[in-house]
């Protein structure tokens, strides 16, 4: 967890649930990461997690309504990336989603978004209502920009 003294100012934007809006805000964050020499591993991880968070906001938070507003906050430092995604929905209880990695659930076509966010980010917090996701990825200090993704 980042201490209060380390908290940088966050940028904030309110977007609708359209592809163009997703691409714009994602590229803003990734650009800042590139400027701070994050490696390809970090860039890929944040991109996937960010995509899943925004997709969840539209599909689950807003029941597919792309006109509802989503608040996105982010900060990028030389040490970590923090992103918050807040939708206007009633939220959901992640405990109600079947474990997508359980053998009996491997053929379910949905329910992997939060699991992917948790896998690719170092810290993930969903508020009690379930409509405000905060996630942090720490910079991989062992790899520099342009380095190959480490093998699994």
């Amino acid at each position: 967890m980042c201490s209060k003294a380390e908290q940088p100012d966050k940028q904030r934007v309110t977007i609708c649930g359209l592809r163009e809006s997703f691409d714009e805000v994602q590229e803003s964050v990734l650009d800042l990461m590139r400027q701070n020499q994050y490696c390809d591993h970090d860039l890929f991880s944040v991109r996937v997690a960010f995509e899943e968070a925004l997709a969840n906001a539209v599909l689950h938070g807003h029941q597919g309504d792309t006109t509802s507003e989503i608040d996105v906050l982010w900060s990028v430092t030389s040490e970590f990336v923090e992103i918050e995604v807040i939708d206007q929905g009633r939220g959901y209880d992640p405990q109600t989603i079947p474990d997508p990695t359980a053998n009996e659930n491997l053929t379910l076509p949905s329910g992997r978004g939060l699991a992917m966010i948790r896998a690719f980010m170092n810290e993930v917090h969903l508020n009690e209502r379930g409509n405000h996701l905060r996630m942090v990825r720490h910079k991989d200090q062992n790899h520099t920009q342009g380095a190959e993704f480490p093998s699994a």
């Binding site: 491997l106 993704f149 699994a152």
Partner: peptide, 17 residues
């Protein structure tokens, strides 16, 4: 499947499916 894409399948355990 290169490293990161393979990782998506590994993390979700879909490399078993």
């Amino acid at each position: 499947l290169d490293g990161p894409i393979r990782d998506v399948f590994r993390i979700t355990k879909l490399d078993k499916a």
